[in-house]
């Protein structure tokens, strides 16, 4: 039994149009996505804007209505809103992209972090304070800062407060949607290190959603690449980065700037080759609507979206 299993997930948004604002079509934000997460590991969901990676994350936690498909968490179906018991919601938490807007500026750190606790558990003021202080310490902030407001912290510290809030209910799975993309490189390093640390400490599972392949490469064990709502490739980190099969994955990997200036020419040529291949073999990898085919296994862990043979 997989820890979290997503089966053929579809999230469609209606397009309104015509004279009476009827639904004239659908945007297939997520169009038949399946994957599973192993406990204690980090799964990376990569894609460019409009790929549906964030919608997938939001659908798992129940922030989007699922059109069809299933989400199984420890074997239990958590897809439909009704069956979502409180206990399950405690087990999955989310970290958001922007540490500047995701924290209420008028609330003290104590209230921000205690909010989920108050929703789910009954604690005395004293216990609550103690718990919040423990959480702050866990995320590397001084326990004395419970009475401060978000603006008194730097970007990295704010993101830690967001993490502390997510950790308050001792979740098993954390969905991190672009957790560091609003942060500077050095601050980003701080948050990423820390996310890894608490993963080991608390045996957390991450679903890390990002457009930054550098971060995905650094953090993830397994990676799924999305394009226009569909999976184009899935595999281990090595498979994706050293042996990408799908032309879109290749293009994505080739687009990452190399930090070694000596590789400049080589990278540039590689990118050019990939672009040529992309132009030539586009029709082999995408159907008439420009969408990816369904995934075919090419090894135990490696799956690529290819047209069915024969």
């Amino acid at each position: 039994m997989a820890f979290l299993e997503v089966k053929d997930l579809q999230v469609y948004f209606p397009i309104k149009g015509g004279f009476f604002n009827r639904t004239v079509g659908h945007i297939k934000a997520v169009d038949g996505v399946s994957f599973s997460l192993e406990q204690g590991k980090t799964y990376g969901l990569v894609g460019e804007s409009g790929s549906g990676k964030s919608t997938t994350g939001r659908a798992i936690i129940g922030l989007e209505n699922v059109t069809s498909g299933q989400v199984l968490f420890e074997g239990k179906d958590i897809t439909s809103m009704k069956s979502k018991t409180k206990d399950l919601r405690k087990d999955i938490q989310m970290i958001f992209q922007d540490p500047y807007s995701s924290l209420n500026p008028k609330k003290r750190v104590l209230d921000i972090i205690a909010e989920p606790l108050r929703n789910f558990e009954n604690h005395s003021k004293q216990e609550e304070k103690k718990q919040v202080q423990d959480l702050l310490e866990l995320v590397g902030l001084s326990p004395e800062s419970i009475f401060k407001y978000p603006h008194q912290f730097s970007g990295g510290q704010r993101q830690r407060i967001g993490v502390a809030r997510a950790l308050a209910l001792k979740p098993k799975l954390i969905i991190a949607d672009e957790p560091v993309s609003a942060l500077d490189v050095s601050v980003q390093a701080q948050v990423l290190n820390f996310m890894r640390e608490i993963q080991d400490q608390l045996n957390l599972t991450y679903l890390l959603i990002s457009h930054d392949l550098g971060i995905i490469k650094h953090m993830c064990d397994h990676i799924g690449i999305m394009y226009k709502g569909r999976y184009v490739e899935e595999g281990t980190k090595d498979e994706i980065f050293t042996n990408p099969h799908h032309i879109y994955s290749k293009r994505l990997v080739a687009a990452i700037p190399d930090i070694n200036p000596r590789m400049r020419e080589k990278q540039y040529r590689y990118r050019q080759e990939v672009q040529e291949e992309y132009n030539q073999s586009y029709n082999d990898y995408f159907d008439q609507e420009g969408l990816a085919y369904s995934l075919q296994s090419i090894s135990d862990t490696h799956k690529v979206a290819l047209p069915k043979r024969g």
């Binding site: 490189v185 550098g214 990452i256 700037p257 190399d258 930090i259 590789m263 990278q267």
Partner: peptide, 8 residues
């Protein structure tokens, strides 16, 4: 701010 872009 992207060192990769500079390197390239």
């Amino acid at each position: 701010h992207d060192l990769g872009v500079v390197a390239e």
